[in-house]
């Protein structure tokens, strides 16, 4: 019979779980964590461009990154960082012995802070780039 533990089992199983708040937080934490790691490598790759081309190529690349599609991706990244960071704070509070009976409420408080900060960031980015 197929194994009952391991990464494969986890991936098969996790698609069929009931989505309680804590489980949702766990999955969001994994997905946003992977997103940030992928971004880190993309970032290092893009920044090392100067190593190969110290001329205007880097400035052109930066100009591309300031275009609307890239700014939208930046905001998605910002949302990912906020969700991951705030959920990390939530977990640290549990580790220090607080709120374990209030974990669901705490998750939504953290997500409300994340949503507010993303809205403010969107407004600021939009104002700086003439979206409104």
């Amino acid at each position: 019979m197929a194994g009952h533990s391991g990464l494969g089992y986890y991936l098969r199983r996790v698609l069929r779980v009931s989505l309680e708040t804590g489980t949702m937080a766990h999955l969001l934490h994994r997905v946003t964590g992977l997103l940030i790691v992928v971004y880190l490598f993309l970032h290092i790759g893009a920044m090392s461009y100067t190593y190969f081309d110290a001329g205007s190529g880097f400035d052109d690349l930066m100009a591309t990154f300031a275009s609307t599609p890239f700014l939208i991706v930046d905001l998605v990244l910002f949302a990912g960082v906020m969700i991951h960071g705030l959920n990390g704070l939530r977990i640290m509070l549990f580790d220090m012995g607080y709120f374990s009976r209030r974990q669901k409420e705490l998750f939504w408080v953290m997500m409300a802070i994340a949503a507010t900060s993303v809205l403010i960031a969107t407004w600021l980015v939009g104002a700086a780039h003439g979206w409104w």
Binding site: V17, G22, A25, S100
Partner: peptide
């Protein structure tokens, strides 16, 4: 433990 709270739930 990853503090997922499925056990408590």
């Amino acid at each position: 433990c990853h503090t997922i709270f499925r056990c408590t739930d």
